[in-house]
Design a protein around this nucleic acid. Structure first.
Length: 270
DNA sequence: ATGATCTCCTGAGCGC
DNA sequence: TGCGCTCAGGAGATCA
């Protein structure tokens, strides 16, 4: 389940290995992903990717003709570089053949991801509703306090809401709330003002810690050259129900909030 | 307008 | 062994 650190790791891999190289051929299955692409994937043939940017969990490729690609990995999406003749994994939707015969594959078993190709001037609006990226240096405690004050949702749902703060998923929301000592059940508007700056600090720290280790590999996440992330051993509460809290020793609990698992310590998260 | 719930989809894990 | 059930979740649609 790629979240911000995993997507940023992939962005860096694409920046290093895709940018500046021409796509000479496109081999695609019929698009069975969630979104239709305005231009067919085959329109990428002959194009060169000149930059790869990220907003929250969404990637944007800039093309040499002024067009772009918008990509989201959903739950199980992967970009993987492969050499010529390497076996094709199941659920490979798209293969972009590069000038040297290497190829970049888009693989997504659950098909929650998207990959759309846009003509010059057709800017995708698919992330327009997102809030500021969680790692955007423009964030201040004052801004976060203001957004929190307007929401009656539990902190868990608030932090998962991409329109409020963009890029967090279930793992990092659980971990950031644990670090901040805040219960996922507390209402956003009831967050003590003095707790807001530490919360923001912990959100940024948990993302940067994970990023430094190449992300978290919980199920099947790997970066664009097939390596897993190493943050897993640093998780304090996520999927640790029944284990003792590393801070206070109380038992980690699992509850369900709006259909999603929340893991937290009932002892030290208030 | 806001928050909660449902839906999409497949693979993994489990019980019988 | 193998079937069928449940669960996981990002984000958009829909409901209250």
């Amino acid at each position: 389940m790629p979240e911000l650190p995993e997507v940023e790791t992939i962005r860096r891999g694409l920046e290093a290995r895709l940018v500046g190289r021409r796509i000479v051929d496109v081999m695609a299955q019929p698009n069975r992903l969630r979104k239709a692409s305005p231009l067919p994937w085959s329109a990428l043939a002959g194009r060169k990717v000149v930059a790869v940017t990220r907003h929250a969990k969404a990637l944007r490729w800039r093309l040499d003709d002024g067009g772009c690609v918008s990509a989201h990995l959903g739950m199980t999406g992967k970009f993987l570089f492969a050499g010529p003749g390497e076996p094709l994994p199941a659920h490979t939707h798209l293969r972009l053949i590069l000038e040297d015969g290497q190829e970049l594959r888009f693989i997504d078993p659950r098909r929650f991801g998207w990959f759309t190709v846009h003509a010059p001037g057709d800017e995708p609006g698919d992330t327009d509703h997102y809030g500021l990226d969680a790692l955007d240096p423009a964030w201040t405690a004052e801004m976060l306090a203001a957004v929190l004050a307007r929401s009656k949702a539990p902190l868990k749902g608030f932090l998962l809401d991409q329109t409020k703060i963009a890029g967090l998923g279930n793992i990092y929301v659980c971990e950031a709330l644990w670090r901040a000592g805040l219960s996922p059940r507390r209402l956003a508007c009831n967050t003590p003002r003095a707790a807001v700056a530490p919360l923001l600090k912990h959100i940024i720290a948990v993302l940067e810690d994970s990023l430094a280790q190449g992300g978290t590999s919980f199920n099947d996440y790997v970066n664009s050259i097939g390596e897993p992330g190493k943050f897993l051993t640093d998780l304090a509460v996520f999927q640790k129900a029944g284990h003792p809290c590393p801070r206070c020793g109380a038992e980690i609990r699992r509850i369900v909030q709006s259909g999603r698992s929340s893991f937290y310590c009932g002892g030290c998260q208030r």
